[in-house]
Design a protein around this nucleic acid. Sequence first.
DNA 1: GGTATTATGAGAATGATTATCATTCGCTTA
DNA 2: TAAGCGAATGATAATCATTCTCATAATACC
Lengths: 144, 144
Amino acid sequence: MKNDSLSQKNTTRPTHHLPHLTRNQQAVLAVLRQQSDALSAQELYGVLREQQAIGLATVYRALETLKLQGLVQSRSGTNGEALHSPIEQDRHYLTCLHCGQSFLLDHCPVHDLAVQVHLSVPFKIYYHTLEFFGLCEPCTHQRS
Amino acid sequence: MKNDSLSQKNTTRPTHHLPHLTRNQQAVLAVLRQQSDALSAQELYGVLREQQAIGLATVYRALETLKLQGLVQSRSGTNGEALHSPIEQDRHYLTCLHCGQSFLLDHCPVHDLAVQVHLSVPFKIYYHTLEFFGLCEPCTHQRS
DNA sequence: GGTATTATGAGAATGATTATCATTCGCTTA
DNA sequence: TAAGCGAATGATAATCATTCTCATAATACC
């Protein structure tokens, strides 16, 4: 249920000014945008090394910066690592409790609600994440 | 913005049968339900040790079990650890990109949408998470 | 160009998470 | 109640993700 047809509508992303991304930070972001699945820092590192010289620490630092910019989001994977994905594509997931597999939602059901929330509390919202958990079709049957 | 007034409406939680929780697993769940903030495994371990004898590995195993049951959710914290919280209270957050602080939403704006999503894909939804990211009031001013 | 500032990389250090394995617990059955 | 069995537990080691350190390189600013 990968949604490969999603296009990047808006490259000049965050509504707040972005301070300047270094070459490496841009490279990290670019890789994340190419992938259809969320990547761990180590996986990201592996992909990047095929393209250019880069240090693992730099990858982590880039992720930290990008998260602070609101350009990348992270969630905890099933093996104790964090999984990272770009947020400009408004990715929302269905995640199976049994096999851990994630499926992309092609539409965000919350999109407009953010406005209302914004009005009720002193908080400037830049983006949101939504994740549904349950059982995917195969796991509904063959459960351990 | 802690929401301490939330009460547990439903102790017999997941719609799918729950296989049986051990004493330790129940203890872990109980502590999480008492806390107003999400806890790391280590913090959880610290709190539990004040009440009873328990091993760190058991805490991790209990968390894994509880997550599989749909009773606990995890998200990645700012220090490379995972933060765990009970899901029966339907916790949804506003998280500040600058200071990392999380604020509880007292109302879930998505609650009914799950039904629609369920109908459109072969996936049985048990719960969902929603998180908004942006800047909290203080951080809107004093930004580095 | 010259200097200050920031980013980078390699590797060490830290710390979270998982695996191992012997022991204990909980439950069933005789 | 006793014996037996499978799952749970705890201590500890092992693993691996993440962060820190520091010397160097790149970049910005004058």
